[in-house]
Design a protein around this nucleic acid. Structure first.
Lengths: 222, 222
DNA sequence: CTTGAGAGAATTCTCGAGAAAATATAGTTG
DNA sequence: CAACTATATTTTCTCGAGAATTCTCTCAAG
């Protein structure tokens, strides 16, 4: 299915990134090279190379001569990430709806269908595949903006989305029917080529989801 | 003045990045590790680490098992970069104008003053310090958005701006009095706290500058 | 009881060497 | 002469070791 990238480097890169996003490496944790060496079975040089990459993407904080840390989380950071996501994704969805061809529509229909199936599963109480569900959610949002004609924008968006995803994983709340309806409404607006409506729905959708998250994570502490 | 970072790594990182932005390493060039090793006097591991970083920022293209290249330039890419810069910088300037405190105003006044002095020099035919001029230009634009309250946005903007700068350096045109007036108008709008006007002026300013560049680089070829 | 200095330990930073893969070259066959 | 194969060369990828730096703990002085 998905091509297996076989260098030690890109493998550990993906694993570390995954572990940060999905909370297995907790925010603020010191990433000691020697510890990572045993955990990921890679050499110091290789690890440094990948940590450097993750640092420039913002998942890792690097301090000169003092090592690497998992980037901490904070209320302010989540708000910044959210605003950026709204800005980028709303801009992209407009372009995408205006430029999208038949292939784009096809992929969008498929992505929404897969997401919808998973959402039904979740509504029925099956919470065994939260990670898969979130992946379909991401793929649906990506399908919406795929035709925006800007590789640069899609790249930046992907990173921002992953950062948003990390916050989601810290609580992993499911808004239920409400979110399902929002996805459907956005999907319909996109097929109807109503860019303005899609933008409005998208912004509300994103902000509502994050409010939910903000309350749960940063209600008392930090 | 500016603190000298002394590790071999960050030094070569800065030098390679500089050489890419200022065209000393031409777009598309194959970056052979062994060649870089002699040029920058650093080991393979260190070089790989820094090239990986530059790759994830988009200044270098990395192909699995096939090495590193200076990211190519293209008309489409410049247009994408421009649209992103407009999107990010206009959003940031609005926030900044609405939130900026006295410190922000002070820095902005200083940045505009320095830029203005340099522009006068350029108008008088002194073109010996183009790099300094472009630095002041960048610092002015940064000063405008500095108070936007989003580290994430400022980070992304900085990278996008550097990419824009590389295209500028490929031609290095000077629009003269026109650009000077535009800077002044934006500066005045910011001090008058007229966010909407500042946004409009900024978008026009950016797009005009790029049109100028587009014509010169991609008029015939590629 | 706090503060500072200094030795020792832990950690990061940098390097060159060997393994793995890709590219270029030469040789052979149809 | 073209196309394929085998070999040689180049280049990337990965690793562990040693140097440089930071951190930690102990102990003494005020």
């Amino acid at each position: 299915m998905n091509k297996h990238i076989n260098t030690v480097g890109s493998n550990t890169y993906q694993r570390i990134k995954h572990d940060i996003i999905y909370g297995e490496l907790e925010p603020g944790t010191k990433l000691k090279l020697d510890g990572l060496k045993t955990r990921y079975a890679a050499s110091l040089s290789t690890l440094r190379e990948m940590l450097s990459r993750l640092a420039s993407e913002g998942f890792v904080a690097a301090e000169e001569q003092r090592g690497f840390f998992v980037t901490p989380v904070s209320r302010e950071d989540l708000i910044e990430i959210t605003n950026l996501r709204v800005l980028l994704e709303c801009s992209a969805v407009k372009e995408s709806i205006e430029n999208g061809d038949t292939d784009w529509e096809g992929n969008l229909v498929a992505a929404h269908h897969k997401l919808h199936l998973m959402e039904q599963k979740m509504l029925n109480g099956d919470e065994t595949e939260k990670e898969t569900w979130k992946r379909y959610d991401g793929e649906f949002h990506l399908a919406m903006i795929q035709a925006c004609n800007s590789k640069n924008l899609l790249d930046i968006h992907a990173t921002i989305y992953d950062k948003y995803l990390r916050y989601q994983m810290l609580v992993l709340t499911y808004r239920g029917q409400e979110a399902v309806d929002e996805h459907k409404a956005m999907f319909d607006a996109a097929l109807a080529r109503d860019a303005k409506l899609a933008q409005e729905l998208l912004e509300k959708h994103i902000r509502k989801g994050v409010e939910h998250t903000l309350e749960k994570i940063f209600s008392v502490d930090e």
